[in-house]
């Protein structure tokens, strides 16, 4: 849509105006790292962050959420929806792509109303990465270093101002209502183009092949010996899944009151790397070994999800690589598979 400009001096007012109508969440410092959190003051917002421990997914699919409450007498239940208006501020392009994928996942087949209700009440303000977040990112290989959709507004830091790309009518209304802004002049458009073209060489392709070849590569990698090797190293700790912006598996549990009269059904994040994840009702566990579970994980990202939704299941954010204490990384695994296949 259109391109607008916000002077940096007007940003604090923009955020405090938003606070009157929305819950605003954005990147905040957490020890030496960053985490998305509630913003109550513009100074808390760290738009210069590199990456966050957990992705902004947690505002659409929370770590734990109540799906419905129930009464055992009469077996009645009432669904719980979270529809508070919220702005997620400062989302990087890899995470924009991940949310775009989750939107498709939760709207396909049995529609997930809990996710979709939240999503409908959420606005996304993205921010362009001008330098790689750290040595683990491989967004360029996965085609997520820029985003043309999936945001309502998208900022690019031009020094003393932000260029704001308007992505949706809702974004346009937000800007008109809450931010002092002006149209982009010729020199500002030129500056934006320069920033965007100059950023590209700062990022490196970290896969030895194009990310779009992943489904084909995975198709010939089922029997690769690498899965056996990962068996020895992987701790089955689940961290790689839990920090991933595209993982969406959850476990459903009931919490019942002491008098057993009332309760709530909740869902919590789960992980396919955990030993008991694939145990089914009959007692059988169909992915007993860490090797099988690792293989499953990389097949999900590289083949099953793209086969199902037409988008890669990994956006190259590098969070799993940062979290893994035994250095199991998508770049390492996929390059090894590629090498084995082309050797």
């Amino acid at each position: 849509m259109s391109l607008r400009m916000i002077d940096k001096g007007s940003m604090a007012a923009f955020v405090s105006n938003l606070l009157q109508a929305y819950e605003v969440v954005g990147p905040r410092a957490k020890d030496s790292q960053y985490a998305f959190g509630r913003i109550t003051d513009y100074d808390q917002l760290r738009l210069d962050y590199n990456t966050t421990i957990l992705p902004p997914k947690k505002y659409l699919l929370p770590q734990e959420e109540v799906l419905f409450t129930f009464q055992t007498e009469g077996m009645s239940a009432a669904p719980v929806f979270d529809t508070r208006p919220r702005v997620i501020f400062g989302v990087h392009t890899c995470d924009i792509h991940a949310l775009h994928l989750l939107d498709a996942v939760f709207a396909t087949g049995q529609r997930d109303e809990h996710y979709l209700e939240r999503r409908a009440a959420t606005l996304i303000v993205g921010i362009e990465c001008l330098t790689p977040c750290d040595e683990h990112s491989f967004c360029k290989s996965m085609g997520t270093l820029s985003a043309s959709e999936g945001f309502d507004l998208h900022l690019t830091d031009l020094g003393d101002r932000y260029a704001v790309e308007v992505g949706t009518p809702a974004g346009e209304a937000l800007l008109a209502r809450y931010a002092a802004n002006h149209g982009a002049g010729e020199s500002e458009v030129g500056l934006l183009d320069k920033m965007l073209s100059e950023k590209w060489p700062r990022f490196s392709y970290r896969l030895d092949f194009d990310g779009n070849e992943l489904p084909a590569l995975m198709a010939v990698s089922y029997k690769n010996p690498i899965w056996k090797e990962l068996e020895g190293r992987c701790l089955a700790c689940g961290s790689c899944n839990l920090v991933c912006p595209t993982c969406y598996c959850f476990d459903v549990q009931d919490r019942v009151s002491m008098d057993r009269k009332t309760g709530e059904r909740i869902r919590v994040w789960d992980s396919c790397q955990l030993a008991e994840f694939a145990r089914v009702g009959s007692g059988e566990n169909f992915r007993k070994t860490r090797a099988e579970r690792q293989r499953h994980r990389f097949f999900r990202k590289g083949k099953y999800i793209p086969d199902m939704h037409g988008e890669l299941g990994c956006v190259g954010c590098g969070r799993c690589a940062r979290a893994c204490l035994v250095d199991i990384t998508p770049v390492g695994v996929w390059n090894a598979l590629h090498k084995a296949h082309t050797a």
Partner: peptide, 27 residues
């Protein structure tokens, strides 16, 4: 039957190993 890391990550803690410490949480 899952490890402490799962609860730790859900809480979005900075991993103790990244702060120079040691932790048995994964097992």
């Amino acid at each position: 039957d899952y490890p402490v890391c799962v609860e730790c990550k859900r809480k979005e803690n900075v991993c103790v190993f990244h702060k120079g410490g040691f932790c048995l949480g994964p097992v």
